[in-house]
């Protein structure tokens, strides 16, 4: 019973925060609700026996990504944007998206054959098991991701350099 209560509380928190991210006029409020929603997702991760991932999620997202967002919001100092009336293409796209989502829900509810919970959960969710997977089966992806982080760092440095265009010189 406590399990049920915890699951529904956490998923309600996450969904409510996601709604508030989408609808809030102030960008800072949106970032804060994103942070709260991430806490909810981290709780769901813990319920799924992935406490390490919950920790990493909070570390990377709450520690780095949301802080970066807030920093950029502070730097740009944008006025709260007004909701403009929607174009027809937007309405059509959202209607199609909603229809596809309903179709997905219905087919998931009616037709999906999903595995029941593995008895006793995952046998091996220790840090050692993750490390073993990362350094044997997924060794090449780890190398590629590391290289990609280097490329991203170089890209950010190049992007944030002051560019001298001909317009500026004249």
């Amino acid at each position: 019973m406590a399990h049920h209560l915890l699951f529904y509380t956490l998923s309600f928190l996450t969904i409510a925060c996601a709604v508030l991210v989408v609808v809030s006029k102030n960008t800072v409020n949106a970032a804060m609700f994103l942070l709260l929603g991430l806490v909810g997702v981290a709780g769901l991760f813990v319920m799924l026996d992935a406490a390490l991932l919950a920790f990493v999620l909070l570390l990377v997202y709450a520690g780095a990504v949301v802080a970066l967002f807030l920093f950029i919001i502070m730097l740009l100092d944008t006025t709260p944007g007004s909701m403009k009336p929607f174009k027809t293409s937007t309405i059509v796209a959202s209607a199609i998206g909603a229809a596809l989502l309903m179709l997905g829900f219905v087919s998931l509810r009616e037709r999906a054959v999903l595995p029941a919970a593995a008895p006793g959960g995952l046998v091996n969710v220790t840090l050692k098991a993750y490390a073993e997977q990362l350094f044997t089966t997924y060794l090449l992806p780890v190398q590629i991701v590391g290289f990609m982080l280097l490329i991203a760092m170089l890209g950010v440095i190049v992007l944030s350099k002051k560019l001298h265009t001909p317009e500026d010189a004249s």
Binding site: L48, D49, A50, L53, V56, L114, P115, A116, A117, A118, G121, L122, V123, N124, V125, A129, Y130, Q133, L134, T137, Y138
Partner: peptide, 13 residues
């Protein structure tokens, strides 16, 4: 979690 493997979790990394 429900398939009893660790691959999905590694992908999340």
């Amino acid at each position: 979690r429900f398939n009893g493997t660790l691959d999905g979790n590694v992908f999340v990394f």
